[in-house]
Amino acid sequence: MRLLLTSATSELGRSLAELLAPHHDLVLTDLAGHADGETNIVACDLGHDESTDRLVEGADAIVHIGYGGHFASSSDLLDFHTRCTYNLLTAARSAGVGRFVNLSTLRLLDDYSENLTVTENWRPVPGVEPVILSAHLCEYVCREFGREGTVKIANLRLGFPLVDGDTAAAVNSGESAALASDDLATAIKAALIADLSANAQSADAPHPVSFRTIHVQSPIPNGRFLLKRAASILGLWEGQGAA
């Protein structure tokens, strides 16, 4: 599978590239200001021009970092996560890219008390900090493209913090919402091919579901967020995680 990864020079992008490279034909891209001097990175500012169309040409799927990429000013964060994401999705839709995986964050639900059984059906409660607000707006952009169909979008809300290693490393971190890098790689691989309509209310409708939010944190005992859709859509961690 030919896979395009955005914000590839960010710390998260570099980690993901390392995790995904063994399994995919990976194309790495970043904004020109970040890609300067980098080899093997396609510089693209995700504008509404031919360069974005060329970027997505031939891609089977796109993994888009919708949270936790580059540090930037509030204006640049908002611009990247709204306009650039819109341009990328527009190009992806035109090119017939079959799958778009947006990497968001479970911090959008951080205001809920830890004792609550927070699933994907709970409304996000973002703050106004630019990094969180941008993640929320990035989801908003994706959702509207998903509503119109064509591009199938898996919106993965990632646990925090991200820790190197396997599930045991997440358990050892002592953080109830931790996500191990191995579990993240497993979830992304599954999201690239998953049937997004699995267990949807409208699964029997003639038009397949084209936007699903899925919580992705490591399946640690008494984990903070429930992983029902990770199990039902991605086929991961059935019966594990939060009780």
């Binding site: 709204t82 819109y86 999705l89 527009t90 409660v125 973002p126 703050g127 106004v128 607000l133 929320h136 707006l137 908003y140 952009v141 509207e144 493209f145 509503r147 119109e148």
Partner: peptide, 26 residues
């Protein structure tokens, strides 16, 4: 809101959502 992806509606809807989020915190 369900603005869809038409540029004018979509960008204005994002603006309205920003405003709404601010009212939840201020």
């Amino acid at each position: 809101p369900q603005p869809g992806t038409r540029l004018y509606a979509h960008t204005k809807a994002l603006g309205q959502e920003i405003d709404r989020v601010f009212t939840t915190k201020h």
